[in-house]
Design a protein around this nucleic acid. Structure first.
Length: 823
RNA sequence: GCCGGUGUGGCGGAACGGUAUACGCGUCUGUCUCAAAAACAGAUCCCGCAAGGGUUGGGGGUUCGAAUCUCCCCACCGGCACCA
């Protein structure tokens, strides 16, 4: 017997965390003979305090890593900090501290808080993206992209946040046209900037073969990439006998004869060429107005089409017809060619536009089973495909051939071709910010844009700068940084003062974890071969179209450059849900429903908070944080503690074959099965429920003779192991107390015997016409004849059958029998 | 508008097409206590004295049998949003 003690989480947790750290138990060695398992969670931004969301992400993810480790894997579970970014800069401006100091102090604080979670992180592999030994390689990667033509510098309209004073990637502008970070209205601004040619990989990024990713995320990425198949067709104008072409992209080349107008985006370079003198003023006014329009205003007038006639005409290359050219802001310069053919009969938007401006509508497609009708009577465009009419030589072409026929004709005549385009735009990585990774580029009056030689990396970001109250990047006013010499000629030159989007840092950090201390290279081939790709990635769904897309792009590009030999970074992906406040609303300071974990850890200990996080509900569903529900988990852990400490007796070895003993052994096997299946599928809530049930039975039996059996003792032991991933400290203590010299986390996950999970008896449910009428305990190996006999002989059952004739008897072995009886 | 997801007691949530409501919270009753808390024991979907009947957002279908499959509708959540 063990001397009875009370469960005291504080002492236990401190004790074990110290021991784990001292023994470096969670370092994943590079030379282990065990198969590797790379269990990754998204690295945090060092905001300064760990909140419930962090706990909700890390706790189940850690339980999974521990489970894998107990199953014989060399689990690598690293952590680090995504340490560049705007909040540090804002804090610097607001509080007069340096972003560098603020960030490192936050990391220090967070690291302490993170250790309290009791997570099996391999701190030896920690990376901090804002330190030169990391960002040196981010810069090196930039140079590789540059050398391979995947990074380019250009002046182009960009999303500009006037409050953050920086450009934003498309992915960082919200649907309502505001800045993702500060909510300010984003405007468009022409600016010199660096872009990454992610569009080159658009097609490959659409493939998700072999990935176990949430269907939702795959769909979101597919939609974001937005592949469209169609044709480019070139309309033309003859200027003084000289023919010039204006291409359009269309997914419906079959409707070419229905093009009754032509539209240019307000930024289209052809507008001035086509505008007639009498329309000049109107066109100028329209363009002026469109350029001042913010995204929000465009959206608010979403339903109402606007536009202006240029007075000019272009010729339809297939029908030879001249069509009027309009300018309208529903055509986007950034998609396709910035020009469209308007086919009002068969496109909703064109229909609306033609209706508003009195442009003729001509039907050229006849959907299956319809007769031609007067478009003036229509209330909407006919989108459906069909047989072509009013289409000259194409008349009568059936729906299935129409697209190909027109495209083939255009190709033959040299006036167009089949084409695939994407909604995905190139990734804008320039940020007009200070606290980011410097772009290793120098501008020389003599040699232009010059990449820094690799052996001169890193380009060091100054740690102390003078902040501007405007929020403007102080970096461009740092003479020591900006003024430099040209790597080619040694003459005076200017350094690029923009820094990189922080998504650059997080697009490759999971590679660095494999070889975090390498000072010769970003990684070694051996390290990559050993650890990559990531087996399991766990993090928020908000990164579906940003981080997760950029990282995939990085890996594919680096593969093609010869730096890697795999194509997908994350084999399995899981998105945890969101923890909400007690009111079911998103936690926010303004709502006043923010719950910090610290107080609860103080009161109940880490293990209770961990288990509670997993017990709230399905891991991908999230849920409300309700403090009163912690009580239940707390009681469970206390009962767990006492049932083991009060009943543990290592000397009990009675292998009796009583039915009670067999029942306990069955419970043990069943529980192993349930917990194993649940944990491996991230169903921690039901795994804990299974353990609670098992615990409840053990408590019920503790004063019975069976508590002296070996089966009972074994079950106590098994329970400790099964709970270990979720509650690593209490189980470690109990494992020690029950006489095991080695850490429970280094023990081998218990296995079960399928035979021993089977009940000796079961409750036979007898239904009459699908309704439950009787329940009888019967032996599991009962024959069907016996079941039928029992069922039909049962007086209650008989009374429900009454005068009716038995039509059918359905027997589901081990469960129920259903007697179908009608008149 | 388009795409995806969800809808089960007072609450969080369980249920290979087969006993709906496991596990936990809360509530009620009891034990202990001068008392309270904690702990422990029991009860707890609805109607009905009972027999019985009803119940998984609403309506239909498939099936011996549907929370589960299928169709339509409603509500909520997430994503995209004039992408030609």
């Amino acid at each position: 017997m063990i001397t009875r003690t009370r469960y005291n989480p504080k002492d236990i947790e401190q004790k074990w965390q110290a021991r784990w750290e001292a023994s470096n138990q969670y370092h994943a060695p590079d030379d282990s003979p065990l198969p590797k398992y790379y269990n990754l969670m998204m690295l945090p931004y060092p905001s300064g305090d760990l909140h419930m969301g962090h706990w909700y992400n890390y706790t189940p993810a850690d339980a999974f890593g521990r489970y894998k480790s107990m199953n014989g894997f060399n689990v690598m579970q690293p952590i680090g900090f995504d340490a560049f970014g705007l909040p540090a800069e804002n804090a610097a401006i607001k509080r007069g501290v340096q972003a560098h100091d603020w960030t490192l102090a936050n990391i220090e604080r967070m690291r302490k808080q993170m250790k309290i979670i009791g997570t099996r992180w391999d701190w030896e592999r920690e990376i901090i993206s804002c330190l030169p030994d990391y960002y040196k390689w981010t810069q090196w990667l930039f140079l590789q992209f540059y050398k391979n033509g995947l990074a380019y510098h250009t002046k182009a309209p960009a999303n500009w946040c006037p409050s953050c004073n920086t450009t934003l990637a498309n992915e960082q502008v919200l649907a309502d046209g505001t800045c993702e970070r500060c909510g300010t209205r984003v405007i468009r601004k022409e600016i010199e900037q660096w872009l990454f040619r992610i569009t080159k990989y658009a097609d490959e990024l659409l493939k998700f073969d072999g990935l176990e990713w949430p269907e939702k995320t795959v769909t979101m990425q597919r939609n974001w990439i937005g592949r469209s198949e169609g044709a480019e067709l070139r309309f033309y104008v003859d200027f003084d006998g000289k023919r010039e072409e204006v291409p359009v992209f269309t997914t419906r080349p079959d409707t070419i004869y229905g093009a009754t107008f032509f539209v240019l985006a307000p930024e289209h370079p052809w507008i001035q060429k086509l505008t007639t003198p009498d329309q000049q003023a109107a066109v100028d006014a329209y363009i002026e107005q469109a350029s001042h329009m913010t995204e929000i205003e465009r959206l608010s007038t979403e339903k109402e089409k606007s536009g202006v006639f240029t007075g000019g005409y272009v010729t339809n290359p297939i029908s030879g017809e001249q069509v009027p050219v309009w300018v309208a802001d529903y055509v986007l310069m950034s998609y396709g060619s910035g020009a469209i053919m308007g086919v009002p009969a068969h496109d909703e938007r064109d229909f609306e536009f033609a209706r508003k401006f009195g442009i003729p509508i001509r039907q050229v497609v006849l959907p299956e089973g319809e007769e031609p009708s007067d478009p003036a009577t229509w209330t909407e465009a006919k989108i459906a495909h069909g047989r072509l009419i009013n289409s000259g030589q194409f008349d009568g072409t059936p729906a299935e051939d129409a697209l190909k026929a027109v495209t083939a004709y255009a190709e033959e005549k040299g006036i167009g071709e089949h084409r695939v385009i994407f909604r995905l735009r190139d990734w804008l990585i320039s940020r007009q910010r200070y606290w980011g990774c410097p772009i290793p580029i120098v501008y020389c009056p003599e040699h232009g844009t010059v990449p820094m030689p690799e052996d001169q990396l890193p380009v060091i970001l100054p740690e102390h700068v003078q902040f501007k109250s405007t929020g403007e990047s102080p970096l461009r006013y740092e003479p020591d940084f900006v003024n430099t010499t040209c790597p080619i000629c040694g003459g005076p030159a200017t350094r690029e003062a923009d820094t990189m989007d922080t998504f650059m840092c997080s697009s490759w950090y999971f590679l660095r974890y494999a070889d975090p201390k390498n000072s010769e290279a970003a990684w070694s081939a051996e390290a990559i071969k050993r650890w990559e790709p990531v087996d399991q990635y766990i993090g928020g769904a908000e990164h579906a179209t940003m981080h997760l897309l950029y990282a995939r792009f990085f890996i594919k590009a680096l593969r093609d450059m010869g730096h890697l030999n795999f194509s997908e970074p994350f084999t399995r992906l899981f998105h945890q849900g969101m923890v909400l406040g007690p009111d079911g609303q998103k936690m926010s300071k303004s709502r006043g429903n923010v719950e910090a974990p610290d107080g609860y850890v103080d009161k109940y200990g880490t293990d209770t908070v961990r288990c509670y996080m997993m017990f709230i509900g399905p891991f991908d569903a999230g849920g409300s944080f309700k403090a009163e529900n912690l009580e239940g988990v707390w009681r469970f852990l206390n009962r767990f503690w006492s049932v083991i400490t009060e009943n543990w007796d290592a000397t009990t070895t009675i292998e009796d074959d009583s039915s009670e003993s067999r029942a306990i052994e069955r419970l043990r096997n069943k529980t192993i099965k349930r917990v194993t299946e649940d944990v491996s599928n991230f169903r921690f809530n039901t795994a804990l429920a299974a353990l609670m049930e098992c615990n409840n039975v053990m408590i019920k039996q503790q004063n019975e003779p069976v508590a002296k059996s070996a089966a009972y003792r074994r079950t106590l032991e098994t329970m400790i192991q099964l709970l270990a991933p979720m509650a690593p400290h209490i189980t470690e203590e109990l494992w020690e107390v029950t006489g095991h010299p080695e850490s429970v986390h280094l023990s081998t996950w218990p296995t079960y015997d399928e035979e021993k999970t089977k009940d000796e008896n079961f409750t036979l449910v007898i239904q009459v016409n699908g309704k439950v009428r009787e329940k009888i305990e019967v032996p599991s190996d009962i024959s069907e004849e016996d079941v039928r006999k029992i069922a039909l002989d049962n007086p209650r059952v008989a009374s429900f059958i009454g005068e009716n004739t038995i039509r059918k008897v359905v027997y589901v072995p081990g469960r129920l029998v259903n007697i179908v009886a009608t008149r």
